[in-house]
Nucleic acid binder design. Sequence first.
DNA 1: ATTGACATGTGACATCGTGTCATATATGAT
DNA 2: ATCATATATGACACGATGTCACATGTCAAT
Lengths: 206, 206
Amino acid sequence: MPKQTFFNLSVEKRKKLLESAEIEFTRVPFFEASIANIIKTAGIPRGSFYQYFEDKDDLYFYLLEGKLKKAKNYFSTLLEKHQGDLIEAVTEMHTYFLITLSDEEEKQFFKNALLYTTHRVESSFTSIWGTYLDNQEIQKVSELINRQCLNISGDKELLHIFKMVSALAFNNLIEKTVKGLTDDEAIESFKLSMNLLKQGIYKQSI
Amino acid sequence: MPKQTFFNLSVEKRKKLLESAEIEFTRVPFFEASIANIIKTAGIPRGSFYQYFEDKDDLYFYLLEGKLKKAKNYFSTLLEKHQGDLIEAVTEMHTYFLITLSDEEEKQFFKNALLYTTHRVESSFTSIWGTYLDNQEIQKVSELINRQCLNISGDKELLHIFKMVSALAFNNLIEKTVKGLTDDEAIESFKLSMNLLKQGIYKQSI
DNA sequence: ATTGACATGTGACATCGTGTCATATATGAT
DNA sequence: ATCATATATGACACGATGTCACATGTCAAT
């Protein structure tokens, strides 16, 4: 989290700084991004940067998580739209990431996040629906999820299904980025995953 | 891939160099590892390093993939042992990574790989069973897999199941590392994933 | 043995990046 | 007006990477 000093800054200065960071993290993946470039663009001295942020991580994840905040809320609305059908909601969420995110620069930013991903990046991403992965918030999801059609016995399994779905979605986004799949191909692939998960891959009678 | 010059080196020198690299990559994750440390331990001058390898990536992935080669072969034997039952084989493979890998230093090396993972690291890992993900090698797997109990229509779906299982296994290893789960907890969690995948998460009758 | 062509070894160097710190300046309460 | 506290600033120490001119080794042909 940025230091208090950062939040005490004027709105314009803060905005300028965040925009400069966004430009740099859009240009190259995290580990190649340089603070030197960010402060040059923002027009602030080096010392000031360290007055606002601990380090590069601090700024980066503040930026990334800000971008993902919208998505988290959107997911809740999707659950309601699909009457609590988890797979339907996740599938549309996934499509949202591919299609709705039509801004080329925004896309590049996420691409950089996916390619050179660290565990922390993955955590940020999966926390879109991962708010619910937190045990304390399991109540919320219980209200939203339609459990009638789910083949599960308790909250533990529901939690687990969330984790699986997150892992598969994240993996699909990486695969798309790396292999240069089209949006449709990626969506098709994800739907196949979801269908296999829904129906199960083993025959019932054996 | 290392340059030819590296392979022209004497066995001892090559071994020394790889051991030094292993020490460094065990000490810290990839991005914090320094070539300076590696060459100091190996006792070679800086210029020589660049005569052998393109850069740090080159050395790292040569080392990592060497370590994973054994695992790939082991997976084939597991498929045979379990009469082609994919989930059984994957589950044992996964356990192998957690339990059989009892060497503490080896463990730390993999932990570093998982924590600061990049797409390339994930690719290396999933290629343990991912040899089969290559379409050209789909024949091999067809021979090993027992398809009778699988609820699938063709090779395309079989391929897809491999991908899903890889993603879930990789994700589980990361989760274990980050949350500090015990081996048993991680295995339990993975088995739950595999069961949900086997049986499907949606009720059949709805 | 000598030569010459080619492969390999070597470390100083240019360049770039990070995080710190001493010092300067602003702010705001008393 | 004074003082304490917060913020601004950029030079600096340190360490990392990749390169390059030059040194040394190797080996086949004469």
